[in-house]
Write a protein that binds this DNA or RNA. Structure first.
Length: 389
RNA sequence: GGGUAGGUUGAGCAGGUGGUGAGCUCCGCUGACUGUAGAUCAGCCGUCUUCGACUGUGGGGGUUCGAUUCCCUCCCUGCCCA
């Protein structure tokens, strides 16, 4: 094998083909991986700890899942990536034989900010489980992801929220660029793709610099990170415009990390995004919020206790075929575990169905009207800004 | 029948031994959630004309400038004894 950093081609078992659709920069594509193909635009349910919370692999399959996301940081702490490797790798461990993308732990640099210290070489965490000192570097992240055996690994990056001063955003971006090169050097598996991550906050010039730096490296895909972390919708849209313009005709698959809501998908697909992941569909499901052809429902609201119909008459998921709103509302009140599964089954199905509808609309030219329908259901363009605790 | 401990806002409690009881936890109502330390978090949760005001400590009466507190009486509940 040639040195990893010099390899410009996607690993042998990977392939991404796409075609322009005539709708903005939107593309229709197909990404092949060792564990199966992915139709794009596509959404990846998040299974941080080797499980999409409350769902079985069979549930995921039935919902139409083509690829899931799992997490380097969490799995390295528990049960440990070496243990997962000994048990045959992540696919066998969790009994999911479809494609898996692993996040690098970079997001935890952001979400666990109060438990870590960043330096130019890497990040030291105090484990959220037992406080023990944990070191994550680009090399270490790749080592863990290779042990897990995901189909797609992500580079270790640093993201900052939009409230940070400009020099802090720039410094995190430059670290991300250095770390990107180190990740490429560290990779050793030919059956695992590696995606670079563009950072730069909401500053157009920094984003252009970051696109130039990351797209100039031989990554198998390009991710856009550092969005949906507190900036306004307008800022996210503008940043996606800048990134799309800067990427130009780059043929690699494009992944917008951590997005999103139904209206967000349209914003991003129009700007050339092929892949999404987000905890939103599964997290809000566990908190009683169900996404439907009539918009968002909060099943904790009293009125649902007396409604005999399904969550969404337009949905064919297990939940909607078999259970009433009244029943699910009852399960939430009683804190019965089935509530979480039924709600998650529905929201994942809704989200993946929506992706399918988006692909269909791109194919037949009805994207714009679909976007308007969904925007009407979900309150226009959604919240003015993306909040975060 | 005798004794004893109690009765505080839907429930369970805290507090208060003469000087402004609306405090907590449930329940309930509503909202939030965007590369998951999240089956979580936040607000509200007696009434009203809600930056404030009023009402409320089982019922009634008394003492007092002032009573949840002291006195009388009645009602209700738990436990013990007959």
């Amino acid at each position: 094998m040639t040195s990893a950093i010099g390899r410009a081609r996607i690993p042998e078992s990977f392939d991404f083909t796409f075609r322009a659709t005539g709708t903005g920069r939107a593309r229709l594509g197909r990404l092949e991986t060792p564990h199966g193909g992915i139709d794009t635009p596509q959404f990846m349910p998040v299974g941080t700890q080797a499980t999409v919370k409350s769902l079985t692999p069979a549930d995921l399959r039935t919902a139409g899942t083509q690829i899931i996301l799992a997490n380097t940081y969490h799995l390295s702490l528990r049960p440990g990536h070496e243990r997962i490797a000994r048990l045959g790798g992540l696919h066998r461990f969790m009994s999911w034989d479809g494609p898996i993308l692993t996040d690098s732990g970079g997001f935890q640099v952001f979400s666990l900010a109060h438990l870590r210290q960043v330096d130019d070489d890497g990040v030291t965490f105090a484990s959220h489980l037992d406080g023990s000192r944990q070191r994550l570097t680009p090399e270490r992240s790749i080592e863990i992801q290779e042990a897990l055996g995901s189909d797609i690994a992500m580079t270790f990056d640093q993201l900052v929220d939009s409230t940070q001063p400009a020099d802090e955003v720039e410094r995190a971006m430059e670290r991300t660029h250095h770390w990107a090169g180190r990740c490429l050097t560290a990779r050793s598996r030919a059956d695992q793709a590696l995606f670079g991550i563009v950072q730069g906050g909401v500053d157009a010039e920094l984003r252009r610099q970051s696109v130039a730096a990351i797209s100039g490296l031989p990554f198998d895909g390009i991710a856009v990170g550092g969005l949906s972390v507190g900036e306004s919708k307008a800022q996210m849209t503008e940043t996606l415009d800048v990134v799309a313009e800067a990427l130009g005709s780059d043929p690699r698959v494009r992944y917008l990390m951590g997005v999103g809501s139904p209206p967000d998908f349209f914003t991003a697909v129009e700007r050339g995004i092929d892949l999404f992941d987000c905890v939103l569909p599964t997290r809000v499901a566990r908190n009683g919020q169900l996404w439907t052809s009539q918009g968002k429902l909060n099943l904790r609201n009293a009125r649902f206790l007396d409604e005999p119909g399904p969550i969404d008459p337009a949905c064919g998921c297990e939940t909607c075929r078999n259970h009433s709103r009244a029943y699910i509302a009852h399960l939430f009140r009683a804190e019965e575990l089935l509530a979480y599964r039924l709600a998650s089954v529905h929201n994942v199905t809704y989200t993946l169905d929506l992706m399918g509808r988006i692909r269909g609309a791109l194919a037949d030219g009805s994207f714009t009207s679909l976007r308007e329908v969904v925007a009407a259901q979900f309150g226009g363009a959604g919240p003015e800004s993306i909040s975060r605790r």
